[in-house]
Design a protein around this nucleic acid. Structure first.
Lengths: 134, 134, 134, 134
DNA sequence: GTGGTCTAGACCACA
DNA sequence: GTGGTCTAGACCACA
């Protein structure tokens, strides 16, 4: 299997640890990372990405806290069984917050609502195409 | 003419200065603010919005850097001659980036593509009504 | 109002940032901290507790992520409106995990199930008595 | 006599070595393990439990330090003469501490005192059945 | 002033 | 070997 590929943009507005979190989430969603699979060790990934181990640890910790990953004492970090963690109200709230942010970012660029929706559809499409056969 | 209306949502994920920037941009685009028109002074707007003057100053500075506003030493800040600041390519690139990020943020929440698009449509709706979601 | 009191035991098995998290949660539950109230700044609390600011920041971040606190850019951290964040399954899961850990810790000490339940009842009682009149 | 039965739950919040320690303690308390009886060698038990030998060694070391086991150079490890290791005061103090911590951990989850007690009762039940919750 | 991120480096518990 | 915690200290965005 191809190794987990994560690409970091330094100097982006999006913090490094967030980039790692988001890309691991995508990898889990597409099936690139399967339930039970081990992630690279904190130190290994830090070396690959040329970032500080603490930064990787922070990303792993966040994913562990919200149930996407599972840490096993002294053994490593693994993709967790998928389970429902957030209440529906909270899921909707977070979606609304993210949409709000997205729209505010783009409205300044002068796009119409239709163009925004199309851009979202396209972004979804791109991720869908990465989907790994089960 | 009605005074420039700007609505701030404190506690939004979007920083206050960004909200100011975006709403002034929209006001210029819609013609609510006309070329050459004066903007309220930093202090005046800060008092109206109940916001730190630094925050307004930061917003004006960004818009001036962008070429949307023009500062005239000792006289005040004015809406600049319209000129296209960003090339279309650049605008589209930024849109795609923002959409990617939005989708990545939401991927763990388990929504469908349709739900994402609806959330965006709704966020646009809300901003159009100038009532930013909390 | 009496200032927020937090007591740290260094060298405990329980990490410092966890102690801070737990005690802030208790303070919110008892009403010592009210909705909307500001918490001491990261730096101030760090100085009071004689710990590194990063440690306090970590505690605040955890509470913010799970909705107990709310961070306002550049202004500070505040007690958030109480809302339901976790799905019921997840709440039960966490309760079961905590109970499991508690029982495993105490079973080695040779206590009976009844004694464990009594100890829990008493711990609840103690916190209840701290409850501040609304 | 039936061989010593120990059941390990990997992925529990309770470290494996703790599970081993606790279950051996219980086995001694219940008389399943008798004074003077030999325990399986570190390697044998590690193989049986599918666990790292270091982990078993660590458990035996703790029990030996406590006085529950006795290591006889070159012969193996045995159940020691019973002697009360902890004074009652100390045991009660630890129980109260553990109960406090349990309650504090759960306070944000919004359960009633009754529900907490029930969860404890259930955890005891599960451990009694030697099926530790995952 | 506020919190958030990141690095470097130490130390720890656990397997 | 693994991840988790903590410190010291820098730098950043924001109000």
């Amino acid at each position: 299997m191809a190794p987990l590929e994560i690409h970091i943009t330094t100097g982006s507005q999006v913090p490094i640890y967030r980039q790692v979190v988001d890309q691991i989430r995508v990898a889990i969603a597409t099936g690139e990372l399967k339930v039970g699979q081990a992630l690279p060790s904190v130190r290994a990934m830090a070396q690959t990405l040329l970032v500080n181990p603490n930064t990787v640890a922070k990303a792993y910790a966040e994913l562990t806290r919200d149930g996407a990953l599972e840490s096993q004492q002294g053994r490593g970090v693994f993709v967790a069984q998928k389970r429902k963690v957030l209440a529906d109200e909270e899921r909707l709230r977070r979606l609304a917050l993210a949409a709000d942010r997205f729209v505010q970012e783009c409205i300044g660029l002068g796009f119409s609502a239709t163009e925004l929706r199309q851009a979202v559809a396209q972004a979804v499409q791109i991720i869908r195409q990465r989907k790994v056969a089960p």
